[in-house]
Write a protein that binds this DNA or RNA. Sequence first.
DNA 1: GTTGACCCTTACGTAAAGGTCAACTAAAAA
DNA 2: TTTTTAGTTGACCTTTACGTAAGGGTCAAC
Lengths: 132, 132
Amino acid sequence: MTKRTYSISELSEEFGITLRTLRYYEDEALIAPKREGQARIYSTSDRARLIWILRGKRVGFSITDIREVLNMHYGKGGKEEQCRVTISACNKRIKNLEQQKKDIDETLEELSSLVDTMTIFMAENYPAANSI
Amino acid sequence: MTKRTYSISELSEEFGITLRTLRYYEDEALIAPKREGQARIYSTSDRARLIWILRGKRVGFSITDIREVLNMHYGKGGKEEQCRVTISACNKRIKNLEQQKKDIDETLEELSSLVDTMTIFMAENYPAANSI
DNA sequence: GTTGACCCTTACGTAAAGGTCAACTAAAAA
DNA sequence: TTTTTAGTTGACCTTTACGTAAGGGTCAAC
C-alpha cells in the first residue's frame, strides 16, 4: 500500500500551490480534510478532489462552479428533481466546454498563422540568424 | 458595401456587453475607436479586435494577455529581437492552449460519465418520469 | 531550553474586471 | 423651447482568488 494520507505541505509541494490556497479551498468548502489536533490530514480522496479542483481552474471554472460540480458527484442518487437539475447543469457545462474548445481552436489557428508570418518575415529580413 | 462604422451601443448590443465594458477596454488600450466630437466611432477593424478580445476572454486570457497578443499582430515586422520574443511568446501560449484542450477533454469525459451514471440511476429509480 | 520545522487562526491587503451612480453635453424630437 | 435620447467622464463600489503579515502552538533535535 502506498501512503494514505498527506500533510498540507506535501500537497502544496506536489501540486505547486501555496498553503494559503489549500486552506482557502477548505474555507470555500471544496475540501474537508480530517484533523489531527489542529493539523489537516488529507486522504487520497481529498487529493483526488484537489486534482479536480486544479483541472477545473485550468479550464476556467470559478470556485463556485467547482463546488457545484464536486457536490454533483457527491449528491448523485438523490431526489428525482435534484437529479434532473444536476443532469441539466452538467449538460450546460458540457456545451460551454465544447464552445470553449472551438474558441481555443480558432485562437490556436490565429496564433500559429501569426508565428508562420513572422517566421517567414524573419527568414527574409534576418537570414543570417541561427534558427534555434 | 456593408456598414463601415458602429456606435458604442450597436457593438454593445451585438455582442451582449455593456457600454462600461467597451469603455473599459479602451481604457486598457485594447481598442482605440476614432472620435466624432466626443462620441466613439468604431470601425470594422475595431470590431474585429473586439471579436478577438471576447474570444480571448472565453479561452481564459486576461486583459493583459489579450493586449499582448493584439500588440503582436500590430508589431509584426519589427526588430529582430522583438520578432524573436513575439514568436516565443506565441509558442508559449500555444502550448498552454493545447494543455487546456486536454484538460477540457478530461473534464468533458468526467461530466458525461456523471450524466450517464445519473441517467441510469433515474431510469432505474424513477422510470415513470417522462424523459424529455 | 532554545532553535527550527511545520502547523494553526485571524484579519487586512490587492489586482482584475467590471457595476453603479451622478453630473454633464449635444443633438434630435415633440 | 423644452424634453428625450444617446453619449460622455469621473468616482466610488463589488466580487473573486488568493497574498501577506501578525501572533501563537507543538514537537523533535541539539
